[in-house]
Structure formats: structure tokens, C-alpha cells
Design a protein around this nucleic acid. Sequence first.
DNA 1: TAGATTGTTAATCGATTAACAATC
DNA 2: TAGATTGTTAATCGATTAACAATC
Lengths: 211, 211
Amino acid sequence: MISEKTIERLSLYRRFLNIFYDEKIENIYSHQLADMFGGSAAQVRRDFMSLGYNGKSRVGYKVKDLLDCLNDFFNTSEKVDIILVGIGNIGRSLITYFNTSNSHIHICAAFDKNDYKINRVISNCRSYHIDEAENFIKKNSIKTAIVSVPAIEAQNVSEKLQKAGIKSILNFSPVRLSLSKKTYVEDIDIGITLEKVIYFSGKNSIGVKNV
Amino acid sequence: MISEKTIERLSLYRRFLNIFYDEKIENIYSHQLADMFGGSAAQVRRDFMSLGYNGKSRVGYKVKDLLDCLNDFFNTSEKVDIILVGIGNIGRSLITYFNTSNSHIHICAAFDKNDYKINRVISNCRSYHIDEAENFIKKNSIKTAIVSVPAIEAQNVSEKLQKAGIKSILNFSPVRLSLSKKTYVEDIDIGITLEKVIYFSGKNSIGVKNV
DNA sequence: TAGATTGTTAATCGATTAACAATC
DNA sequence: TAGATTGTTAATCGATTAACAATC
């Protein structure tokens, strides 16, 4: 059983390894990766073990093989199509961000309930009315959605998505969604996070450890 | 010592309590709040204790008093001015988001290195050249900054901010910043997070607990 | 070989929860 | 009182780290 935190680290390793690979570095040691994001070398080794990839003593890990392994794990060889609901400022910037970087993730459609926002194209992504979402999801077997609608719409929208077959949601709305446990929900709550950051800028933060 | 996770929960309680307050609900129980975001009632009570606020058995907690207490804790009575560096799509949407909602947080200035992005006004926030940041920060005693520059600029920009007196950073760039521990850094790495969400949409996710 | 790094176990740490006497 | 909720302690859980024999 691989934990959520481990998944995050693995994804980060993948990013680092891509850089190493571009720089034609062939081998790396656990402590090098550990230094790069403040973890321990033991943790890095344990993570790779959980992935089923073994290094060699005194040699470390082969960048290319390890990267292949990570790419396999995240299925980055094939494009992943996801959708976005809620074409506000944040929604639009996410579309541009993902569809113009060379990521394997592609936002293939966006949905909104406002008529003036539909039937447009942003960075290769066409927008539709929210009522068309269910059909689209089923037809294209979409599994993942980004929700960036206003707080008051979020619960309702997510329930619709779940019914249509969405298995995981990245939620930017400042609301906790209550959905059946079958759907994985991850929240990015920028307001809460910023509040926390501001808190730690004050004198209160003396003695806090920056993990 | 209040942990980071506790701070996050406290901020979330504040949001819920505002809703209760608007609905003129006078008292709440720990288990009500616990239900709202899937924690335990014991945790909620412990959090309020760490805040120094005590409830009464059989009565619960006074919404108004508790809210006052939380507002005090987060210093929400006075506006907090923060700055933003990197006026890309995400940067712009953050400015609009915070400066048009009725939050106590205000992005009072934005900075960029591209000339065509400076000397403009977005949602009550004027943009300046990055070279003017140091002066601005010192002059206005700014303590918190949002960094939303491209990956390659992030380390350099953050070092400048730190030197100018910034105490905490909310970092949207897909890079780990290495700064002295005196500066608190919180990362929102949308790419990594989305990768994780996509991972849990697959068959891999069977048996995973949705914390 | 000597030295460095690995895989892996045991110890540590911290956060969360369960439980219950005290309280209203 | 009886019953429900609190503050608080003890137990649990999981993640992280330290340590070290095995390995090249």
C-alpha cells in the first residue's frame, strides 16, 4: 500500500530525474535526492523500494531506468485527458498552464453554466455548457475533473460529476465536498493556505519549524 | 506550540463559524464541526483548547465568542497587505480572487520583470518592475509574498524577497526553494497535486482511504 | 581490501483517536 | 437526577529517522 505522501514524493522525484536526464547525468545517490527536498536518504530508498526499483550499492540508481519506472508508475507515456468545470479566472489559468506546458496531462474540455462562456476555445480546449458534461464524460471515459466553481455550486457540481463516472476530483472551491468514498477528492484551498502563510509571517512563528 | 495542521483547521473553523454566525446559530457542539470535515470531536475540542477557548458541558461553544477568538488569533480585524511576484495567468487570477472577495487579505502590489506588464492596475492592485520590490517591501513593511514566477526564476526572486524583509512565502512555482529557515515557505504545486489526483482515479486507487 | 551505498530493521516522533471522569 | 458534552489522559496509529549488516 503506497501512501498519498509517497505518491507526492514519487511525482517530485520524477520531476528531478527529468532534469538529471536532460543534463545527461547517468547515476544518482539517495542522499542527492534527499538533499534536494529536505528528506532523509533512507526515505528516498524506501520510496524506490516501494516502487519495486532497486539500486546498487556504491553505484546508486540509474537515472534512465528509474525514470522509466516512474513514468510507468504514473502512466506518463500516454496523454491523460481530464476536464475542468468552472471557467473563472483560476479555471482559465489552469487550462493555459496545463495545455501549453509539455505535460502529459491535457484538459480536453471545460464546462460552465454561463452561456457567454461556452463554445469558446482556450489553449486548445473547447468550452461547453455544464449540462453536456455527463455525456462528454461517459463518451470519452474521463476519470478526473478539476472543480473551480464558486463555493455555492461546488457540492452540486461534484455530485453530478460523480454520477457521470468521475473517479477523482481536484477541488479549488473553498468547500469540503461530501461525496461517497469511491471518489477521491483533493482540495487546494488557496484562502486557507494563504491565511496560514500570513500567520507564520508574524512574531507567532518564532520557533516554528519549517518542515 | 500550535502545529501547522492545527492552524489550517482553525482557519477552516473560522470559515464555518462565519456561516453559522450569518445564519444566527448561537451555539455549536464539537461533534457538529467534526462532522463537517471528517475529523473527530476530540480533535475539535483539543484545537479550541490550544486556542485557550473553553466550551461548557452540555452547552457547547458560543459561536460569536469563538469567532471573535479566532478572528483575534488570525488578526482579521485589520487588513493585511501582501505582494505578488510574477504576473502570469495564475498571478492575475490570484489578484482578482483576493482583491474582489471580502477577505481581510489584500494584494497591494504586483511585480514582474517584463516591461509590458508593469504600470497597470488589476483589481485595485498596481504592477511595478521587480527592481522596485525591495523598496516597496521595506517602505510598507510587507511580510508576506506570493511567488508565481516561472520555475527558473523562483529561487532568485525568493532570495531577493527574503533579503528585503519578507518573512513568509506562498510559492506556486514548481520548484523547492532553499532559503534560510527564518523564512516560512509553503508550496502549492498544482502539477504534483494533479498528478496525484490522476493516480488515484485509476484502478490503483482501490482500497485507498480518502482522508 | 577499504570505503561507500544499499536494503531493512528497530527506535523515535508526532498526530490522532478512544475513553472516561468531571461538569452542567 | 439523568443525560449529554466537556477537558484531559492513555492508547493507537502511521510516518519518519537512525542505525547497521550486506553488498559492490
